[in-house]
Amino acid sequence: MRELSLHILDIAENGIAAGADHLLIRVEESGASDRLMLSVEDNGRGIPPEKINHIEDPFVTTRKNRRVGLGLSLLATAAKRCEGDITVEARPGKGTRVAASFRRSHVDRAPLGDMAATLAVLILGNPHIDFRYTHRVDGREFILDTRDLKTEPGGLSLDDPMVVHRVSQFVRRALEELAAGPNLSPSMEGTDA
């Protein structure tokens, strides 16, 4: 996968396929510790105990339409290549949390990429599911919670391509601002590198 946001889309789709109706997606970037962490937490049916020790094996899958399960093994490979790792906590019947960490400045770390597109695809493709996206960069934070979109004045219909298109444009701008960092201070940047 060329972008971490594509891994996020893939892992989130796994949660949806597992019957989740609420997903928490987090991205946390820290310049000081040079780490990037991402996590996807769902309230789907979890992973059966007999499969949990094989989650990184691409030839282990619960699906019936093909015999390979590449998503988690691709994410694990990407994280390990960048001095990171993945953790998977699954409680059968309650949900799954997949987290991956990376050295943020590692030369092999894929860019986060178009997170606004990932969220747009998730929201439009699954308008009945609630998503909460939290993105933190050095203590600054952006949050998008689709429950706010549905419940605030009059509500927005998230199965409407035009609405999701607008929401995605808003998210793209907000994330660009977050990445640019209004208080970017050169003295902070170099200290822990």
Partner: peptide, 13 residues
């Protein structure tokens, strides 16, 4: 960085 505000929602709506 704030959350999506009511004003933003009104604008989209």
């Amino acid at each position: 960085m704030p959350k999506l505000t009511v004003e933003d929602l009104k604008h989209i709506k």
